[in-house]
């Protein structure tokens, strides 16, 4: 039995990583170490997230090609069309949602 794709929740960490994917050139892939460097998050956070995003089909992973024989290959990731679309939808939903408990200083004085 194949596992169903994991549900992606828009946590701060997920948004940081996806924003990085959105910011880079679509043709320019990212890899685990570079993402940890760019976001300032540790590998303990990044690699499990990359695994979930790849399983959900939000990012596409491939092995680096044309690598010199003297070093191992990197796993390169690019944001897929599905990922781009789903992320935009989730962000839109998030903006439209009003929090259950919120305090607005402007309204407080009224």
């Amino acid at each position: 039995m194949t596992d169903p794709p994991p549900k992606i929740r828009l946590t701060t960490t997920t948004r940081l990583v996806l924003d990085l994917f959105m910011a880079v050139d679509p043709e320019e892939p990212l890899w685990g170490y570079r993402i940890t460097e760019e976001t300032g998050l540790g590998p303990g956070t990044i690699y499990p997230l990359l695994e979930r995003l790849e399983k959900a089909g939000w990012i596409t992973g491939s092995w680096e090609t044309g690598v010199p024989e003297d070093r191992p290959r990197r796993r390169l990731y690019i944001l897929s069309g599905t990922g781009r679309q789903e992320y935009a939808t989730l962000r839109q939903d998030r903006r439209g949602r009003t929090p259950l408990w919120s305090w607005n200083p402007r309204r407080a004085g009224q």
Partner: peptide
Amino acid sequence: DWQVAVETSPHPFRYGLGLVLA
């Protein structure tokens, strides 16, 4: 991928422990 990341990192031990955590 993990091997090349550890090798690239300026703090390989910290990165290695991060991979254990991952």
